[in-house]
Amino acid sequence: MTRPLLPRQTRYDYHPLPGRKDYSWPGGKRLAFVVTTNIECFAFGAGNGHDPAKTGEPQTHRNYSWRDYGNRIGVWRFFELFDELRLPAAHNCNSLLYEYAPQVMDEIRRRGDEIVAHGRTNAENHRGLWEADEERIIQDVVGMFARHEGRRPTGWMGSGAYETSWTPDLLKEAGFRYLMDWPMDDQPVWMRTRSGPILSVPYPIELNDSQVITHRRQDASEFCDQIVQQFDEMVEQCERHPLVMNVSIHPNIFGQPFRLRLLRQALRHCLENAQDKVWRARPGEIAEFCYSLPPGVIPGSEMLQDNV
């Protein structure tokens, strides 16, 4: 038997888009439109964290306070914007926010928004962890959310979207129903774990303000134009295939006033056009809808068992 030339992942199989089964979102909609914020807390002078000037800079009071702006100011502007646009939202939240900025979590609870578990803090990621250590962190995160909310999150987005080789296995075994760490598709896809399948819900590495503004040094108008262009193209393509458009924003980046105005315009464009095709959704709602579909519809569903 010939060995493959390249190392391969075994979490999902190759399913080209044209050969997939067709389906529609609730109400016959064809494009699930999602806005996901990233609400994070960081260690002061230690650990990981982006710098507004360049990558690889040491952790200082300056870059700490730049990020902290998001929790003190930016996220509250996001809440007002979502109210203004009547837009449902999901929030990737570090569990240590309960200790650092509990008022933020109180407001998310009051609004009825979805909480997606986002690790303990973005000052750490899971790369290089032993399995038992990563399992303890995941359980600590689940316990923190359950104690404060009376229920645990169903979705996971890793700190920095980093994983170990066994992260999906641990997430499935911890009771998570979906994850958003794998940006390989515009549709939900079932992924293998050693304890049964878990759903991957699309989450962008491209339509992500941290990537665009912090890493690629593009400006706010370019990011907001990308939102509009992505929406207009997907509205056309979703006539042939049901799709998910997820927009990722960080309150320390687009919570800045000069960027917020452009974001408002871009989101308003998405919410005022082609609404006969658009489902304003949260990732957890997308996941639950996919769980309700019969095997054979969602890519990878041949691995489903009766007890999924």
Rank of each mutant, 00 (worst) to 15 (best):
N252G: 06
M234R: 14
T121E: 12
P283C: 01
A123L: 07
I39S: 14
R192L: 13
E288R: 15
T2C: 04
K277M: 01
A101T: 02
D276Y: 06
V308D: 12
E134K: 00
F254A: 11
Q218G: 08
D13R: 10
D113K: 03
P26K: 05
M144H: 05
D83T: 09
G128E: 01
L207V: 14
V278W: 02
P197E: 02
P58S: 05
V141K: 00
G47I: 10
N63Y: 06
F82Q: 04
Y64G: 07
I227F: 03
I286E: 12
H148D: 10
R261K: 07
V189Q: 03
E107Q: 14
P183F: 14
F33K: 02
A89E: 08
G155P: 06
Q305S: 15
F254V: 12
W166T: 13
P58D: 08
P202L: 09
A46H: 02
Y12N: 08
S95W: 09
R194F: 07
W130T: 01
R120F: 01
P183K: 02
D219G: 09
H50I: 00
N208H: 11
R67V: 10
E84H: 03
A174M: 13
T167K: 00
R3C: 00
R109Y: 11
E302F: 12
E124N: 06
P153C: 11
R261C: 10
Y12T: 12
W279R: 04
R216S: 14
R136E: 00
Q275E: 14
E272L: 03
E80I: 09
H215F: 13
D22H: 14
V201I: 15
E149P: 00
Q218M: 08
V116F: 09
L5C: 02
V247A: 15
Q139K: 01
P7A: 10
L260E: 14
F44T: 01
R8Q: 13
Q103L: 03
T60Q: 06
V34N: 15
A132K: 00
A123S: 15
I138E: 01
S159Y: 07
S195L: 15
E124S: 04
D13T: 02
V35D: 12
D276V: 00
W190M: 04
I39N: 15
R259L: 10
L199K: 11
K29G: 05
W190A: 01
G47K: 07
R62Y: 12
G19Q: 15
W130R: 02
E173G: 09
F289G: 05
E173S: 14
I213R: 13
G300E: 13
V201G: 11
M245K: 11
V297D: 04
C224Q: 13
S24F: 03
V308M: 13
E134F: 00
E80Y: 05
A43K: 00
W130S: 02
V34Q: 15
G28S: 07
R240Y: 08
Q230A: 05
Y100I: 14
P204N: 10
S159N: 07
G49V: 10
P242G: 09
R86S: 04
A46L: 11
E239D: 03
V228C: 07
E107R: 14
F33P: 12
E80F: 08
N246Q: 09
R11V: 04
